[in-house]
Design a protein around this nucleic acid. Sequence first.
RNA 1: GGAGGCGUGGUGUAGAGGCCUAACACGCUGCCCUGUCAAGGCAGAGACCGCGGGUUCGAAUCCCGUCGCUUCCGCCA
Length: 588
Amino acid sequence: MYKTHTCGELRSEHVGQTVKLAGWVHRRRDHGGVIFIDLRDRFGLTQIVINPANVSADQFKLGESLRSEYVIQIEGVVTHRPAGMANPKMATGEVEVMVSRLVVLNSAKTPPFVIDDTGRDVDENLRLKYRYLDLRRERMTRNLIIRHRFVKFIRDYLDARGFLEVETPILFKTTPEGARDYLVPSRVHPGMFYALPQSPQQLKQLLMVAGVERYFQIARCFRDEDQRADRQPEFTQLDLEMSFVDREDVLNLIEGLLTEFTEAHAELHGKRLLFKPFLRLTYEETMERFGRDKPDLRFGMELFDVTPVTRGSEFLPFQAAHVKGICAPGCASYTRKQTDELTEFARKNVAKVLVVLWHDADGIRNTGAGAKLSQREKDAIVTTAQSKPGDLIMLIADNDRRIVNEALGELRQEMGTRLGLADAHVLAYAWILDFPLFEWNAEEKRWDPSHHMFTAPKDEYLAVLESDPGSVRSKQYDLVCNGYEVGGGSIRIHRREVQEIIMRLIGLEMEDARRKFGHLLEAFEYGAPPHGGIAPGIDRLTMLYCGEPNIREVMAFPKNQQAMDVMAGAPSPVYDQQLKELHIRLVN
RNA sequence: GGAGGCGUGGUGUAGAGGCCUAACACGCUGCCCUGUCAAGGCAGAGACCGCGGGUUCGAAUCCCGUCGCUUCCGCCA
């Protein structure tokens, strides 16, 4: 072995021992007569000292030639640092290693960026191009470690509860619904294609028919859609499915998993739970109170409804069918320019009108909309908004209640960010429940499944499934945290007659369904157990535990926004011969 | 497909028509230095300001186009 200890483990108790360390030169401080080097490996930093008193002249000369990121091995004696010289900022700061032998295992070019900081202000594509250097930094190593701990915890937790980890194919079949597929041409079957799975959805349901009962997989999923800060073309889900369970069983399992992980590894990630048990909200309540189906619940600033106040108002915007608002604490100092900006923000979210009221020490300021409202209206709005002097009240009016809620939801999110209302050390997990089973598709004049067509309706709605589809609530559930959707799932339909009603409602002909989902529908005829599952996003959850705002920070080799791997250069052209074998001709 | 932001030595920034022969910090190179830990001191190298047009006596700076990156919208059952 090149080393007897890692660079993170030497303490006072090792003093006197002769040790071997190996790693990278993190920082060097050459005092001419004595050289200090912070030696780094994945486990930490240790200060080593090259002193002419302990090494030959040649060895000292070699020490002087060391540069950043050289790979070296040293042998030496662990000693206490001289009195007053300990470094409390380092885990190994009590000790240092007096080098007696130095070996340069490899030299290194000067890196294109420094390794000894967070790297947050380095151009990201440069970081991605030299990802192997970028990952050397402490922050990135820590992110890899947190991700590993998380996945390891998941495996242990589910194994202890009788789950079986089963791998499913990456080369699978295209599904017309959902996201765009990544296609893989078949060499053996000209003109035919595999598709990479968007998730193992069908396969995990088939595993339930297969009697696996408790399945999970740390599953890679592929979706060919445009990127976001929390979206990559390939990502990882904890894919999970259980038989003979209802909603509560799935919720409790996942809630237990995340609660235990958060608490067991608090020292690692420094996060704590806001809700224990997790908060539960119906979809409708979420939209009414927070205006988003993935609200950030770390702060309040809930939407309020002033429609009862504005009904019959002389003020034109208030003649809309719905008027709701939020109250931004301490924002009465906002200038006209700032509120215009917010109006523009609301417009982007399709809200036509943003009414702004400044709440001064002596009430609503008599300017803009404030000048046009009656005292009764102003008093009633203040009461409803529970606003205090110094606050800014923002109201959105529209005949479409959905627009009002959603625009305010985005405004709330924006204000929460601007005002720094969310505690970075808090995880606000919540379940969103009772989603509508269908959404009305006005263009196609039919009902679309709001989750997917295998999601079961709640039992109490079975009777009105056909007579009033819009009112039906489903056994779908979403897990949200800090403004992100971090997982979703449902209890599935296991009875054929219910499945057929749903297919009829969404306008899916039996023949069509057979072609697309034949294998699944056929399987269900052979004794499908009641089952349901969920798929929490490993990357997004890891982001939250790492405190990262971007999914790329928690993946070793992510793609950039153009879905390219800038390190390897993928995608890339291929040889004509390869195309020929695949029976593919390029159009241009 | 659309909107916003950004693009200046290796890295991150400054610069707002002539003061730019482009500044600063870090990094890099050399020299000095035996207790530093973001070591310090001295000296030095390194950028045709993303690219292409245009306006002007004069453009890093203004205009047009284009490319790249990023955030958001669309999209993501």
